[in-house]
C-alpha cells in the first residue's frame, strides 16, 4: 500500500512513516548535492541565513540533466547520499525534516535523524527519465555557478519513494535483505 505525503513535513507526518513504506510525495522540495551542501554548512558556520527556509523541508540529492525547451527539468534520479553525510547533521539541527537519495548513511546521520525526528527516502537510482515525469516545475534558488549542482526548488507530483530509514532509526536496507534471505529458508 502506498502512503501519500505532502510537503512541508511535520513531526506527525514523519512519525507515521516506517522503514519499507512506499510513498507518493507531492509538494515543493529542494535540490542540493555535494558542492551546495558545502556552501550551506559554511553559511551556518558563519552564522548567516540559508538561501531558503529549511524548516520542515525535504532536500533531494540530485543533479539533473539540462531541461529541453518546454520541459521543467531533464533526467533527475538520486545521487548517492553518503557524500552528504559530513554536512547532514548540521542541516537536521537547523530543521531539515527529510532527505531523498540512495544508499547507506553514516551512524552520525542516523543518530541525528532520531534526535531531530527526520526521515530518509530512497528514489529509484537509475530511473532518472521516469522520475523527471513527476517534476512539474523547477525554479533556481541559489548557486547558479554550480550548474547541475545549483539549488533548485522543484514541485513534484506523486514522486515514488521508499522509506529507507525512519525516525526511529529502522533501516530498510537491512530489514529488506534479511526478509529476502529468510524467504529462501
Amino acid at each position: 500500500m502506498q502512503k501519500r505525503i505532502t510537503t512541508p513535513l511535520t513531526i506527525e507526518k514523519v512519525e507515521e512513516l516506517k522503514a519499507g513504506d512506499s510513498v507518493l510525495l507531492t509538494g515543493y522540495i529542494y535540490t542540493a548535492r555535494d558542492a551546495a551542501h558545502k556552501r550551506l554548512v559554511e553559511l551556518l558556520e558563519k552564522g548567516e541565513d540559508l538561501p531558503f527556509d529549511i524548516e520542515n523541508q525535504i532536500i533531494y540529492y540530485v543533479g539533473p540533466t539540462p531541461a529541453k525547451e518546454g520541459m521543467p527539468i531533464g533526467s533527475a534520479g538520486p545521487t548517492t547520499s553518503y557524500r552528504m553525510d559530513p554536512y547532514t547533521p548540521k542541516l537536521l539541527d537547523k530543521g531539515l525534516k527529510g532527505m531523498i537519495g540512495k544508499g547507506k548513511r553514516s551512524d552520525e546521520v542516523v543518530e541525528s535523524m532520531k534526535k531531530n525526528k527526520a526521515i530518509y527516502f530512497a528514489a529509484i537510482g537509475g530511473a532518472a527519465a521516469l522520475t523527471a515525469k513527476c517534476v512539474k516545475s523547477s525554479e533556481l534558488i541559489a548557486y547558479e555557478d554550480l550548474g547541475a549542482e545549483a539549488i533548485r526548488r522543484l514541485y513534484v507530483e506523486d514522486l515514488p519513494l521508499i522509506v529507507v530509514i525512519d525516525s526511529n532509526g529502522n533501516n530498510y536496507y537491512s530489514i529488506g535483505q534479511e526478509e529476502y534471505k529468510n524467504s529462501l529458508k
Binding site: T65, G74, S75, G77, T79, I124, G126, A128, A129, L130
Partner: peptide, 21 residues
C-alpha cells in the same frame, strides 16, 4: 519493471536514462 520502463522513456524521448551522464 521501473528500470525497464525508464529505458523505454529514455529511448522514445531521447532523454538520458540516468542523470549522471
Amino acid at each position: 519493471d521501473i528500470l525497464i520502463e525508464n529505458s523505454k522513456i529514455a529511448e522514445n524521448e531521447k532523454m538520458p536514462m540516468c542523470q549522471d551522464t
